[in-house]
Write a protein that binds this DNA or RNA. Structure first.
Length: 610
DNA sequence: TACCCGGAAGCAGT
DNA sequence: TACTGCTTCCGGGT
């Protein structure tokens, strides 16, 4: 199925021993963990000189090597916002290639502590190595030929044919990561190399990926930097080989049809890449613990994915569309506010079979309404089976989930507000309302429908008898802006139909101080509380009990959100009566015309309410 | 400009 | 043939 190997054999550049190298001070010729505080300072100084970056104030990283090695990327970023990435990567390279520092082979070349692996030798353009392309380069023909026969060919053109044809990003030209990456991969055999030489040319012309960009080629045509594997001690070679081989095997194994776990799914593919630091220039863990990853080279990743799927026109735009389908499956979500950063919502190993990939359109996996009418407007032909109804999505991270949905809802409402100029987009917007599933997550659509007369108030009630819309005329009067929707919610009954499902309830209320019970106390949801949900600070484990017209019922117990509580109590103490605050809130709401309120609740909490 | 969003239609593989 | 998992395109937003 896949065209695996290019017909032409790539001739790697011949490197000699005198290629440019990065030489660390002799005092750093040991594992970073063994550095003293002073040596850490020396390293920082060396980095600032080496990478032409601003001098790093020693007090920013005032620690010994052991502590230094424990710093995460985020720690580096926090301490040195400008160049933290670079330093982190530089350190990681040192750590990973530590053996080179003391290897007799390295000293053969330089006579001292040589670091033959610096990807950061960028005197002229100090760009974070994060932005560097993933460069697969065959740095040494000797090595290539030495190892090539022993390495099996992969089934798909993702991974290297030979271990030694792929190296960590040690010699990249950082001028343009995308170009550089694409360039490289389009010329190196076995690694993302095109099925035929013209494939990339084709794709380059058809998408923004600049798969093989002549300009980039020029840029990359400068002599390869210090990747001469002759400088690499055997231990390093072995390390790299093992690393590559394991990555190769991991991806390759999973792409073999007989393995049963074909790496055809995007999340699987990404996860495979994440498993190997070799691909960190494409995609890397931002926080492996939290399953947050970052795409460092969108074009490169897209190109790689395209190779995997034999889609030569793959772009990040398309890849990200596929990623967005994972949102609703709760497989991957966007990390709000962080570009190119996503999060696995669960351990990839635990992703269920039926949960894989995008859902077909017009289906509702979160049953909310009584079965008698739940699907009346959902566009579903048949009601899903009971087990599907009971399907429980894995828990979301409140912070991510809420803020994300709040943002989404807000955007969506704005986008699909019933103004002439903001009709739903897409190829066939006329089908929009017909197919739209009415569930609680899509309240904005309901608002849209209401404001456009697509659904009568009674129909809406029929769908969800526990939602009351006081005045559709009022809403229509506001329809020129955004669809205002006054919702009185008593979702308790709805929850009966989806007992274990953690829901997001988007409520757009002008005057609807929703209330809820927690710990036998009654709370009105006010602005500060909403903020907690937006920020994910509030516990999702509570229930919504009833609509409360009485704004005097101020929340008393905010113990589930201690941080916010402090802030609130500080800001609220004696400054404003509850009713004043409520009024101010209403006017603010009317100003904004939207109050996306995101509430998560669970069955466990509901019992306290009923 | 790059990234992000989700609807819609269609395609390829199972 | 139904379904999945995208891919492609789109209009719009940040």
């Amino acid at each position: 199925m896949f065209n695996i190997w290019p017909s032409t054999i790539y001739q790697p550049p011949q490197l000699s021993c005198n290629t440019q190298q990065t030489v660390l001070p002799a005092s750093l010729a040991k594992h970073p963990q063994q550095w003293t505080k002073h040596e850490v300072g020396v390293w920082l100084k060396w980095c600032s000189d080496e990478f032409c970056i601003e001098p790093i104030p020693p007090d920013r990283i005032d620690m010994n090597g052991k502590a230094l090695c424990l710093l995460k990327r985020s720690d580096f970023m926090e301490r040195i916002p400008k160049n933290g990435d670079l330093l982190f990567n530089a350190l990681q390279k040192l750590i990973q290639n530590k053996v080179s520092l003391t290897s007799p082979m390295s000293s053969m070349c330089s006579g001292g502590a040589t670091v033959p692996m610096s990807p950061f030798h960028i005197k002229t353009e100090p760009i974070s190595p994060l932005l560097h392309p993933l460069v697969f380069t065959s740095a040494n023909t000797q090595t290539t030929s030495m190892h090539a026969p022993s390495i099996p060919r992969p089934c798909v053109p993702i991974l290297p044919r030979t271990q030694s044809t792929i190296l960590p990003p040690t010699c990249s030209n950082p001028v343009n990561s995308n170009k550089s990456f694409s360039n490289t991969v389009s010329t190196v055999p076995g690694i993302l190399s095109p099925a035929s030489s013209n494939v990339d040319t084709e794709s380059a012309s058809s998408d923004g990926g600049s798969v093989s960009d002549p300009e980039g080629q020029e840029n990359d045509s400068r002599p390869s930097e210090p990747t001469n594997e002759r400088f690499l001690p055997t231990t390093i070679k072995t390390e790299i080989q093992h690393s590559i081989q394991s990555a190769f095997q991991a991806v390759n194994n999973s792409t073999r049809p007989e393995s049963g776990t074909e790496c055809r799914l995007l999340w699987e593919f990404i996860h495979q890449l994440l498993q190997n630091p070799m691909f960190s220039q494409l995609v890397c863990w931002e926080s492996e613990k939290e399953l947050i990853f970052r795409i460092n080279n969108p074009t490169g990743l897209a190109h790689m994915w395209g190779k995997q799927k034999n889609r030569t026109n793959m772009t990040y735009e398309k890849l990200s569309r596929a990623l967005r389908y994972y949102y609703r499956m709760n497989i991957i979500k966007k990390v709000s506010g962080k570009r190119l950063t996503y999060k696995f919502m669960q351990q990839p190993s635990t992703i269920q079979k039926g949960q894989r990939g995008a859902k077909p359109h017009n289906k509702c996996d979160i049953p909310l309404f009584p079965s008698s009418n739940r699907f009346q407007y959902s566009g579903l032909k048949d009601e899903p089976s009971e087990d599907k109804i009971q399907q429980k999505p894995p828990p979301l991270s409140p912070a991510l989930n809420d803020s994300h949905h709040e943002l989404e809802n807000h955007r969506h409402l704005k986008r699909h507000s019933p103004t002439e100029n903001s009709k739903p987009s897409g190829r066939n917007s006329t089908k929009y309302l017909q197919s739209k599933t009415l569930d609680i997550e899509n309240y904005e659509h309901t608002a849209y429908q209401l404001a456009n007369g697509d659904m009568s108030n009674s129909n809406f009630k029929q769908l969800s008898p526990n939602f009351h819309i006081p005045s559709t005329s009022y809403e229509k009067s506001k329809a020129s802006k955004l669809p205002p929707l006054m919702v009185r919610a008593n979702v308790t009954n709805d929850v009966k139909y989806s007992p274990d499902v953690k829901l997001n309830l988007g409520v757009y209320g002008m005057h609807s101080p929703l209330s809820f019970h927690q710990n036998n106390k009654h709370h009105v949801i006010n602005d500060s509380l909403k903020q907690q949900y937006y920020e994910g600070m509030a516990s999702p484990n509570f229930s919504i009990s009833q609509f409360n017209d009485d704004p005097q019922d101020e929340p008393e117990d905010l113990s589930f959100a201690p941080k916010k509580q402090r802030l609130d109590s500080e800001s609220n103490s004696g400054k404003m009566s509850p009713s004043d605050e409520e009024k101010q809130q209403v006017s603010k709401d009317e100003e904004n015309n939207i109050l996306p309120l995101l509430i998560n609740y669970k069955k466990t909490a509901i019992s306290t309410n009923s």
